[in-house]
Every structure is written in structure tokens, then in C-alpha cells.
Computed example of a mutant assay.
Amino acid sequence: MSLLAVERLNKAFGGVVAAHDVSFAVERGEMLALIGPNGAGKSTVFNMIGGQLPPDRGAVLLEDKAITLASPQERFRQGIGRTFQIAQAFHSMTVCENVQMALISHHRESRAIWTEARQHHRRDALDLLSQVGMAEAADRSCSVLAYGDVKRVELAIALAGEPKLLLMDEPTAGMAFRERAALMDLTHSIARTRRIGILFTEHDMDVVFGHASRILVLLRGEIIAAGSPAEIRENAQVRQAYLGNAPALTGAP
């Protein structure tokens, strides 16, 4: 049984087909990259899996349970976490308070927001921050952090929901080269240790080929290739889609 199964998803906007019969699976502990040129349909597919868009046809299953029509909130409660292209954090709060708020939400303790919440789940929050290398910044305001550090905090926030599956939309966008490699190394380690499935979109081919277990390639709403980084690098149809008649797709070996 796959962790996530996507079965023949279809989505059109007027006469524009954004996804056509898209099917694939994500396994536990796997990092699966979803790539394609601009306008290929990546965001549409990603948002149908996350619950932001309903498909016209098809199904999304988490551990064989249909979640096709579930809201993003329901998917979160069933074990789907998400990070965004533009990092999401409360800049008026400290690093630790951001993660504590996520833990309060995960445990459905909304009443704690109206009381003194500063000590709720602080120890658990510090543990999560330690896992992403941000424990020393726990009491700093998110507003003063470097962007790469905010991305790490966002990852801790996502992990607070104890996800089985983590959706990462352009996780390294806006980050310096070294920050990108460090974040994806960390994500890969967490996925392997926790057996979390990771589905991510990314434009940086070094990130994709350096960290993905498998790669899916979308073009005009259809999957044109799926395989290991080595298989995708040598795929003639993929090279054509990305680089015309270039001899090979670039990316880390």
C-alpha cells in the first residue's frame, strides 16, 4: 500500500487543460520531485493534492483512504503537512512561539490561544527546533531571521503536525546556494528517519537531481517521464521539453 496514491487527476480552466490523467504514488521515506517547464501544470497538481483545488475527475488517496474532496484542514488532520514557496511564519512571534502555535493547533487546544499560551508545548517545540537546527534561536523574533532560517522554522512548524506526507512547494526559493543544499539535506534526513513521504516542486535542477529519490516530469498537464534521477537525465523527451535539442539535462550527478 502506497502512502499517497494519485489516480487519473484531471483539471481544466475553461479550454485550458492543466492536468490530464495524472497518476503516481509516493512511498514512505521517499523524496519525489515534480518538475516541468513553466505552465506545465505543477501548481495545479500540487494544489489538488493539498486540497486547495478540487479535481474535475480522478482521486487522491492517503493510505488507501479517499481524501479527494477533503478540505486542506481535514488533510492536515489526516497527516498531510505543507510548506510554501514564500515561507509562512508569524513575524511578530518568536521562533519557539511559532512552533508552539502549530502544536496547539495540532492538539486542537484552541482555548490555549485565549489564555497564557507561552508555556504550552514549549519542550516539544524546542525538540522540533533542535531537529531543524534552530533551537539556539528559539527566543528570537522571526522578524530578524535570515530567510533560510525562516524556512527551517517553517519546516519545524510543518513537522509539529506529525505529518505522514509533506508537500513542499519550491522549498529552496529565495535561498542562497549553501542554504539550499543544507535545507534539502536536512529534509532528506528527516524523511528517512521519520519515514515521511516528501513530494516537492522545484526549479533548481541541482536540488532536484541531488536530493530526489524519483522524479516526475510534467508537460502541458501530462506526465511525460518518471524514474530515477539518472533515468530522467538521459530521457530524450525530457531534454527536448526543457532544453530543445541539448544533449543532456543539467543537474548534479
Score class of each variant (00 low, 15 high):
residue 140 R to G: 04
residue 79 G to M: 11
residue 165 L to F: 07
residue 109 E to D: 15
residue 81 G to V: 05
residue 206 D to W: 02
residue 163 P to Y: 02
residue 210 G to T: 05
residue 164 K to S: 05
residue 201 T to C: 04
residue 110 S to D: 10
residue 174 G to S: 02
residue 119 Q to C: 09
residue 173 A to E: 03
residue 88 Q to L: 07
residue 204 D to Y: 03
residue 71 S to I: 04
residue 162 E to K: 15
residue 95 V to C: 10
residue 87 A to C: 09
residue 115 T to L: 13
residue 77 R to A: 13
residue 82 R to F: 05
residue 131 Q to K: 13
residue 92 S to F: 09
residue 145 L to M: 07
residue 195 R to G: 12
residue 83 T to V: 08
residue 182 A to R: 11
residue 145 L to R: 00
residue 179 E to H: 04
residue 140 R to I: 01
residue 209 F to W: 00
residue 75 R to K: 10
residue 131 Q to Y: 03
residue 100 Q to T: 12
residue 202 E to M: 03
residue 205 M to D: 00
residue 125 A to M: 06
residue 99 V to H: 02
residue 155 L to T: 05
residue 145 L to K: 00
residue 157 I to K: 09
residue 191 A to P: 12
residue 113 I to P: 06
residue 98 N to C: 09
residue 180 R to H: 02
residue 187 T to S: 09
residue 112 A to T: 14
residue 115 T to P: 00
residue 176 A to Q: 10
residue 210 G to N: 04
residue 162 E to M: 07
residue 82 R to G: 10
residue 87 A to T: 13
residue 125 A to F: 03
residue 156 A to W: 02
residue 93 M to D: 11
residue 163 P to G: 12
residue 120 H to L: 14
residue 130 S to M: 06
residue 130 S to I: 00
residue 85 Q to V: 06
residue 143 S to G: 14
